[in-house]
Amino acid sequence: MTTSQQQAGDPLIIGGKTLSSRFFLGTGRYPNPYVQNEAIRVSEAEVLTFAIRRINLEEPEDDAILHHLSFKPFTYLPNTSGASNADEAIRIARMARASGLSDWIKVEISANERTLLPDPLETLKATEVLAAEGFTVLPYTSDDPILCKRLEEAGAAAVMPGGAPIGTGLGILNPYNIGLIVEEAGVPIIIDAGLGSAADVVQAMELGVDGVLMNTPVAKAVDPVRMAQAMKLAIEAGRLSYLSGRIPKKRYATASSEYEALKVK
């Protein structure tokens, strides 16, 4: 079964757009543009994210990063990383839209340079304002179930709780919370930040999230291209496993062939 066939019965729709992949990929930190392009290619990701502040907004098509990405039509998810409050985030989001890049926006507001953890109050504020202005808003937030619900109510098209702080590779620190967030959600939930390996990705998908956004674990792997492929497969495997319903855990063995059936008659 190919990816697109799987998607046919199980589409991911965000802001009215049906996406071809549940893999959202960042364009930062790759060792060079060749490796970046190859990793993006094999990931089959459709949604790419990058920091608005790093982009040449006057000539986005000439930008040092973006001009490499003309080999396929992508959906751009510019992010407000670096913003430390809602006003800054709103300002750069408007600049990104005005440049014609995209009307999707990843709200990312951190007040602490060491943890880069999202500021929940400012994130909620910015989400409200930008959603009201017609942006497709995907806020990056902490893994608090109530906060995620509030972001949905504020107009978020999808909500993106972190598994762990950005770039740490610690995996999903609070699977219980992520499970609750998924249970309550009325919009897609995308795990954003903190994952390290394919195992973390499968775990996220088995918790029922709708997609995964990654950058560092791919870009900083020894072989980013192969890791992009591993992550793609992990997303598919985890999704299929989630949809298929796992067996309950038991304390003792159950023979897969019953003893009776094995007895020599």
Partner: peptide, 16 residues
């Protein structure tokens, strides 16, 4: 050089 207020955090992180 940086062009946005939102670059401050990254600069401060690097300087640190």
């Amino acid at each position: 050089v940086v062009y946005h207020e939102s670059d401050r955090l990254a600069l401060a992180g690097r300087a640190a």
